[in-house]
Structure formats: C-alpha cells, structure tokens
Design a protein around this nucleic acid. Structure first.
Length: 577
RNA sequence: GUCCCCGUAGCUCAGCUGGAUAGAGCAUCGGAUUCCUAAUCCGGAGGUCGCAGGUUCGAAUCCUGCCGGGGACGCCA
C-alpha cells in the first residue's frame, strides 16, 4: 500500500514545491468509505507552509491529478480525501501480488543486516512446560519475520546445561541407584527419560529439606563435573543428549528450529578471560567476599563471582555475547526472555558497555509477560521447583485430540491419515496462535478451555478461512476457470480486501522492527474477518465467467497473504479441514 | 523503599511513529444454511479509554504525579 501512498506523496510534494517529504507515512484511512479511500491530513503541511489546513487541502484538491488509479480528490475541512478508481486500482494491486509470487510480502528493510535471536533456551533434564511456549514461539516467529523482512538471522538456543543444579542431579543419580537406577534400563532406552530425570531431581530436592549434608554432596558432584571427572562428565553428557532428543521432537511439532544450539557449559572455559578483562578495566570490586561490578547508580551492582569463587549465569552471558559478536558481528541481538529478567539484562548490557563494546547498544531484551497457572484458585507463575507444571506436550496432545473429534465430525470422508495430519495442524496451531495473539508484554493466564476454543479469533479460524480459499481455488481449477486481471473487482468489500492485502509487507516490516509477532496475528485476523464478510455477501464463482475469473484472482492473492502469514507464525496453512 | 511492565465493554484483547463518530472476539439476546465448508456471517445490548494535571490546532496514543495489579531488587537460572 505504501507504493500507492508514495505516489500521492510525491505528487503533493511537487504541487507544493517541497523537497523532502514523509507524506506517504502520514496518510491514513478515512473513518468511512463515503469520505474516501485514502486521506491526507494537512495539519503538518499547514505548519510548514504557514497556511491553514483547509486552505492547503483546497489548493491540493484543485491541482491536476493524473494518477490513473485515482478517481477523485476532495476535501473535508483540513483533510484531503482520495477516492480510488476501483477497477484500475484492483488491476494494479492484483498485479503487484501476483508478480511477487512466492516472495509476496518479502521486504528489503533488513537487507545487509545480521540479527541474532536467542529464544526457548530450556534447562536440560527438565520437561518443556507450557510456559516455555512463550519464548519458544515468540522467538521463532520473530526470527521468521526478521528473515522475511530481509535480515540475515541466526536463531540461537542458549541451553541451560550448566550450574550447581546439575550437581544435585548427579548426586541423585548416585543416591537413588538402588530404587531407580538410570543405567538399568539405561536412560537412552527409556520411554521418557527426561521425565525420569525430572522426577529424580524433584525427589532429591525434597530430601534436601530433611537430610543434612545433601547440599554439600551435590556441590561435590558439580565440582567433579567441572574438574572433568569421567563418570560425572559421561553422565552429564548422556543427560544432555536425551534431553536434546526430547526437545527436538517437540520443536519439530511446533515448527521450531535453531541455527545454533549452544549450552552455557560451552562458556565455562572462557570465564577467567572475562573476569580478567573486568579486572584490567578496574571494574571488578570486592563486596562481602564476592566480586561485583557497579554498572550505574540507577541499578544494583552485577554479581560476577560468588563467595565460593564460582561464576554465575550472568558471567556466562557476558562471555556468550562477546563470542557471538566475534562470530557474527550483529546489528541486533534479541534476547527473548521473560520480563522478570529485566534487571539482569540491564546489568549485562551495562557491563558490556563499560568494557567499551560499542555494540552493547545493539542488544535488546525482547521481554514478554509471564504465563500464570491456576494454583489453589489463584494465578501464579508456573515453577518447576515445586512440581505443579503443565507439560507442553500434554497441552498439544489435548488440543490435537479435540481437533480430531471436530475434523471427523465435520469431514467424515477423510481417511485416517488425513485426519491425523489435519488434526495435528489445527490443534497445535490453536495452541501456538493463542500464545501470539496478544502483545508479548501482556501476562497470560493459562486457560486450557480458552486455548481449546476453536471459535472466534483463533488459529482454527484463520486456518478455516485459508481452507475456504483453497476450496474455491480447487473448484475453479476443476471447472478450468482461468485467472483474470482483476479489473472487474469494483465492490466496496473488494477494495477493502485489496487494501488489506497490500499492507502485508508493511505489517511484516513493522512486526520485525518491533519484534512483535502479534502485529501479524492481528492483521491476519482482520484479513480473515473481512474476507468472511465478503464471502457471505458475494459468490466468487458465479454465472458471469469473467467476473468469476477476477474474483478468483483476488482469492488467490488472499491465499498467498494468509498462507504466508500463517507460516511466519509457525502455523500450517491447510487445504482442507 | 527503588526500578521495570501492565491498567480500553462483564471477560480476553486491537487501536500503526498523536488525526475526523474508540473497534474485535467470548459471554448474552435475536436472526441467516436449495448455492464456493455455518470452525462462518448479520443485527441488538454493552465504554467517564484507572484518576488528575500538562504539551498540542487535535491525546486512548506523548510528558509528570497519584491509584490499582504483576514482577525484579547479591551469592539459582
């Protein structure tokens, strides 16, 4: 749509003899279609030209407008309103989309820019819970959007595979061998090894409350791991491997993948070098036996090394950022992590800046609101520690199960393989969309009933709309109907749809810029809703063959837009459901 | 106490870098299916945009203060 606004902007600039203009961006849609299809408020110009807004509007309206896709230019007080020549506009719009082909919506706003997106980043030896959905899906959608906007993206999974917690796990492995020996059956052969590991961990933690000395045993195991003790390392590696294997199976269902999966353990060797740098710059300060860096007066100091000499995850984040920048000198690096870690990232970014790294300003905490679970009637942040987690996989399975029933009921002729494939896409899509519908900063209360509601503004609604497009295209193909050029698309609802379609590239660019997938979610809902309104009023394939051909091409453009949009959100666009 | 995020209809949320009468979905009430999938569509009812100032020709949108909710604030990640 910007393409068209730009033409108006250029013409206005030449009429008024202005050189630099950003008029294309200040144009809006009039509040009603009676007033026009596009509007330029003249207040800004009034300031520049020292004339009243209505005066300028009048002057512009009286000038000659030779854009072939414009019908008329009118004023409404300070507003300059344009009416589009529907036939010509439609022809040009359709042409634009179809020429772009599979690359429709692709932008060049990110050309030549490298972006790292860190997301998901689960801890190994723990199951993925529903709340992991947030970082995982938001991050994957951001990566997709940034790529589609032209950036070079490196998607990054910063695995939590290091820390004193693993000392506990290794201690538990040893302690409970008589009741649950992880070597028989071996971890790798078990049905759900991660769940077994998690159970062992929880059990150990509970014992810590009652039994004295378990903590020091756990610390000792972590020390062994750090020192490279063969048994500790081999068990840790096995734990890591089975965890990754499990994660991958879920990532695959969600359409999630990473260019880099690097655990915190990777940075362990680099810790001393980081600390040396901080020391050289005179930033490291002793405080209560620990070592800290004072970032600014606005925030508490960042803890670098504990009293016992061990480093913390923040120190590893410093090392990680520096290594990343060496490998891929990025223009942006997004951390898709919950808002609760705001201070932590401020400290990390601040320390990097103190170290003299210019690129510290390229680091962004793409924060999101927490997911709360209902615990004893109150909404609480879901935590693994106390048990009480809802497993992501179980939520997916429940959604798919419900979708299966629905698909079978609506479409009894499908064979079982089709039902399975469609249900998976609908169920998983519903879960994914429910997580990305609202702005990422909003906290979300986990309500299974709402996720499983397939009516209204939901993933299934979008997929259903896509299915309608496909049905029409299938039917047209079976009739051998050719695509038209769009010049007969003169209905008001058709203009609404064409304008909506043309905004797609702008929406992608904005969503990428703001790291805000919900911009796309909202856009797709509007597109679907406008189409369904149209669909209820007009027949696409009717008696008039040439009109049908033109409407067909509109449906094709809609399908390209919605289909691509769904893919960017990791939702599978379906042919039937 | 300090800092961060949020506060729009009964509930869940849109509202783009300020622009012409604040929009959806759910729930509720009433309608639509000979015809491209009714997982849909149409209509009714429902709002002092938390409150008070300020900036501006113009504020739900920007600034300040207050209130309410959530979160973070040193040896977990």
């Amino acid at each position: 749509m910007r393409h068209f606004r730009q033409q108006i902007g250029d013409r206005v600039a030449s009429i008024l003899d202005l050189t630099s203009t950003d008029l294309a961006d200040s144009m809006t849609d009039p509040p009603s279609q009676d007033l026009g299809d596009l509007s330029l408020p003249c207040f800004q110009l009034a300031k520049q030209l020292k004339k009243s807004p209505p005066e300028i509007a009048t002057q512009l309206a009286q000038a000659s407008w030779d854009l072939p896709w414009l019908q008329s230019v009118d004023t409404a007080g300070p507003y300059l309103n344009f009416k589009v020549n529907r036939s010509e506009f439609a022809r040009l719009a359709v042409e634009r989309v179809l020429q772009a082909g599979e690359g429709w919506g692709r932008g060049e706003s990110g050309q030549g820019q490298t972006v790292i997106v860190e997301y998901s980043s689960p801890n190994i030896a723990k199951q993925l819970a529903v709340h992991h959905l947030r970082s995982t899906m938001l991050g994957q959608a951001m990566a997709n959007l940034l790529r589609w906007a032209g950036h070079t993206v490196i998607s990054w999974n910063h695995l939590g595979d290091w820390g004193t917690g693993f000392g506990k796990l290794l201690a538990a492995w040893e302690k409970y061998r008589s009741t649950d020996d992880l070597d028989s059956p071996p971890l790798e052969k078990r049905e759900d090894p991660v769940s077994d590991l998690n159970a062992l961990y929880v059990r150990f933690n509970q014992s810590c409350q009652e039994e004295e000395g378990l903590d020091s045993i756990a610390r000792e195991w972590f020390r062994k791991l750090e020192a490279g003790d063969p048994l500790a390392v081999s068990r840790w590696k096995r734990i890591r491997a089975v965890s990754l294997h499990k994660f991958d199976s879920i990532y695959q269902r969600l359409g999630v993948s990473f260019d880099k999966t690097i655990g915190e353990s990777h940075y362990e060797q680099g810790m001393e070098a980081v600390i040396a740098q901080l020391q050289d710059k005179g930033l490291l300060v002793e405080s209560d036996g620990a070592e800290v860096v004072h970032v600014t007066d606005q925030m508490p100091p960042m803890l670098i090394r504990k009293q016992d000499g061990a480093t913390l995850y923040g120190t590893r984040d410093l090392a990680s950022a520096m290594e990343r920048h060496k490998l891929y000198p990025f223009d942006r690096c997004l951390y898709v992590v919950d808002a609760g870690q705001g201070l932590h990232f401020k400290q990390v970014f601040g320390v990097l800046k103190l170290l003299g790294h210019e690129w510290a300003s390229h680091l962004e905490h793409a924060e999101f609101g927490v997911m709360r679970l209902k615990v004893d009637g109150a909404w609480k942040k879901g935590k693994t520690r106390g048990g009480q987690v809802v497993l992501l996989e179980e939520v997916l399975n429940q959604a798919v199960q419900l979708a299966t029933r629905k698909v079978q009921e609506k479409n009894p002729d499908l064979d079982s393989q089709q039902v399975e494939q469609i249900s998976e896409a609908v169920g998983v899509g519903a879960v994914i969309f429910s997580d990305m519908k609202a702005a990422r900063r909003k906290d979300v209360n986990f309500e299974l009933e709402k996720i499983l509601a397939f009516d209204g503004e939901t993933g299934p609604y979008l997929q259903y709309t896509h299915v309608r497009f496909c049905s029409i295209l299938r039917k047209a193909a079976s009739q051998g109907l050719a695509a038209g050029d769009g010049r007969l698309l003169e209905e008001a609802e058709e203009l609404v749809l064409l304008k909506r379609i043309l905004r797609f590239p702008e929406v992608v660019a904005r969503a990428a810029r703001d790291a805000e997938p919900s911009h796309l979610s909202q856009y797709l809902l509007e597109l679907a809703s406008e189409f369904n309104t149209y669909y209820a009023q007009h027949r696409v394939l009717g008696d008039d063959a040439s009109l049908s051909s033109d409407r067909l091409v509109l449906v094709d453009a809609l399908k390209k837009t919605l289909g691509r949009g769904l893919q960017l959100l990791c939702i599978d666009p379906l042919e039937r459901m």
